[in-house]
């Protein structure tokens, strides 16, 4: 029944990776998280930590609960068991210092770029003068200078997500949650945005949890890649990405990058292959 792994000359991932970060250094700590929707158990036994300057990427098949996990981390929905800690607080509702970038962009269509970017600051009660000083900086940072007064419907998907990114960055979070942020933009734009995000992150590193469908993206962005799978799903593998920072276009050409990509690929695909064989018998 169990097929041998695809023959790649990559060593199998160690199932337990020595923690990259010490307890004290962790920005997010998740213990024994379980989430159910009625009778559907989405995931169980989720345990991990994310360091203050660490990017964790999460890959997994559609419907395995990636968005659900991020919504729990953000405090938007409650988990059924287990707990989430961030910055010394137990997360039960959205907390300051955390910001999310949404797959559907989540821009307010009646607000201009400027008003969308300043939204989080206004919600945080930042004084108007301070907002006026900060917003242009973040608008520039994501390359939207000159589009301050544009409405979302006037912009391409890529520009809309730049705006979504600026809105999240503007509150200067120390935890960034990214739910397939570049999944809805075309391939070229996606590549541009990936490197821009990495450039921005290198300038001001934060803890980041980055969900994606793309194995390439997971390896390029991540310090560790979590493979989420199973029913209910859990973190089946953790692959440490020992590629040097800063990650740039050069990274894509490194032999080690290809190895790691294959490693994540085979881990992810083993289940898909099993499922395929089950169907045939």
């Amino acid at each position: 029944m169990t097929e041998p792994m695809l023959s790649t000359d990559v060593q199998r991932p160690e199932t337990t990776v020595p923690p990259v970060t010490s307890q004290a250094d962790a920005r997010i700590r998740v213990n024994g998280l379980v989430k159910r929707y009625g009778t559907l158990e989405v995931f169980r036994g989720i345990d991990f930590e994310v360091g203050a300057r660490e990017i964790v990427t999460i890959v997994g098949p559609s419907g395995c609960g990636k968005t659900t996990l991020l919504r729990c981390l953000n405090g938007l929905i409650a988990a059924d068991e287990g707990e989430i800690w961030s910055n010394g607080t137990r997360v039960t509702e959205p907390i300051a210092g955390m910001a999310m970038v949404f797959q559907h962009f989540g821009l307010f269509p009646w607000k201009t770029v400027y008003d969308n970017v300043s939204y989080g600051l206004r919600m945080a009660g930042v004084p108007a003068a301070e907002i006026a000083r900060r917003v242009p900086h973040f608008v520039n940072l994501v390359g939207l200078k000159g589009f301050e007064q544009a409405y979302p419907y006037q912009m391409s998907g890529g520009m809309q997500q730049r705006c979504g990114l600026a809105r999240a960055l503007a509150v200067e979070p120390n935890v960034l949650l990214m739910d397939e942020p570049f999944a809805a933009v075309d391939a070229q734009t996606r590549e541009i945005l990936q490197f821009e995000l990495m450039r921005i992150w290198e300038e001001r590193p934060t803890a980041m949890v980055f969900v994606t469908h793309s194995i390439e993206e997971a390896v390029l962005m991540g310090d560790r890649v979590f493979v989420l799978k199973g029913r209910p799903s859990s973190i089946k593998e953790t692959i440490t990405i020992d590629l040097p920072h800063p990650r740039t276009r050069e990274t894509l050409r490194e032999a080690r990058f290809a190895e790691l990509r294959e490693q994540v690929w085979s881990t992810l695909m083993s289940e898909a292959r099993e499922a395929e064989f089950k169907l045939e018998t």
Partner: peptide
């Protein structure tokens, strides 16, 4: 509902 969730995510009152 996504937009309401965005508002909650940014800690809107």
């Amino acid at each position: 509902p996504e937009l309401i969730e965005v508002a909650r995510s940014f800690r809107s009152s």
